[in-house]
Design a protein around this nucleic acid. Sequence first.
DNA 1: ACCTGAACACCGTTCAAGT
DNA 2: ACCTGAACACCGTTCAAGT
Lengths: 230, 230
Amino acid sequence: MESRSQRPGRLGRPRRLSREAILSSAERILTEEGAEHLSMRRLAKEMSSTPMALYYHVKDKDELLTLLLDARTERLPRTELPREPRERLLAGARTLHGILADCPWAVEALTSEDHVSASALRIVESMIDAAVACGMSHEEALYAYRVIWYYTIGELLVRLNRERARRKGEDTPWERAMLSLDPDAFPLLARLRDQWVELAAGDHHQRGLEAVVDGLLAQGAVCPGTAGHP
Amino acid sequence: MESRSQRPGRLGRPRRLSREAILSSAERILTEEGAEHLSMRRLAKEMSSTPMALYYHVKDKDELLTLLLDARTERLPRTELPREPRERLLAGARTLHGILADCPWAVEALTSEDHVSASALRIVESMIDAAVACGMSHEEALYAYRVIWYYTIGELLVRLNRERARRKGEDTPWERAMLSLDPDAFPLLARLRDQWVELAAGDHHQRGLEAVVDGLLAQGAVCPGTAGHP
DNA sequence: ACCTGAACACCGTTCAAGT
DNA sequence: ACCTGAACACCGTTCAAGT
């Protein structure tokens, strides 16, 4: 609604592009067409500009992705953390997972170039804090965070691929493999084919997360939720 | 050692390329330069041929990658499976992880195009079988496999990125973020920085795997290693 | 200050033609 | 049967120039 681009004023011609405009166009491409379609050239065309115009506003594609991820994370509703440490640990993991599940392109960015935003660090800090509150040593808490992160990013990756395949109207290769199974070579898998497909379609992140967290807590041989901070 | 390429015989000129030759050249690029350098054009240059010559021997790049992954998996030493079901589950997960850790480019292939080879299915079958032998229902066993897979692929992905960064002589973005932490905003992380870096350098796959598996077993509320097959 | 055009060094793949 | 050349439709990015 700013009229700056309508009434140029005296400081040169109106800017046609801006960081904000670029970011929101990029976000549109990401959500509507998927990360594999976001390119500098495509983005420029979208804004009826040239690829190189973008480089005036943004260092390179990497910076663009970082900015996009940061923007998403910053927009997060700040929910209150549960008091019980195990719950707090779970909550952190859920939040992390939620942000990324909601913008799957970020998973690619996170795993290929691995941008880190301050907002993400906030969550990590709180998870490690919760792990310590569960009675873990510092080393154990850091390690526990990593295990949870592996699980999280793995789940997201598989989820992302499933969605990509869906968008293309294909089955995922696993599904294809399951469908053409030799029942002699793989009796169990052949028998469980339908259950497999059903399970693959559902969302079991939460359930698995609890298994992972409880496994970690049990490994530390601590009774979850007993200790406060040192 | 076949002299076919030396003595053409009567059936046209000697073939300069072959599937095998292509595969082994590709493998060389993958291991020496990393997956990001394997392209049809690069591969052709490597073999002093043209990109299109490759397409005579191989349908497309996707097929090439599938062939490469299959070859690796087939070459696996067939180890004997432990009798104890929990150990068998762990062994399957370790094997899966081992194959992929040993050829990190496959992780990308698995997560982007997700090729499935029969050898991989063999391992999956044996893991689900082991889970059932642990006393899980079929549904629980399938779900357990998935959780383990998420953990595995997540760990591999992070590992892959670390190695890529190392190859480029860079720090990973997480390391960079940890180094420039604001100790007021993130007191715990700032304090644990050195431990973090140390932990990140180590290999904790095994330890985490046990936590994950035991968490899953506990969730099923079964005493691991009690039941045989139904 | 903001943007353009041409260029560089890449991709995977198709198609018609050569030997 | 096996391979080549030219072409198509893409990438990200640099650099010098335009207004």
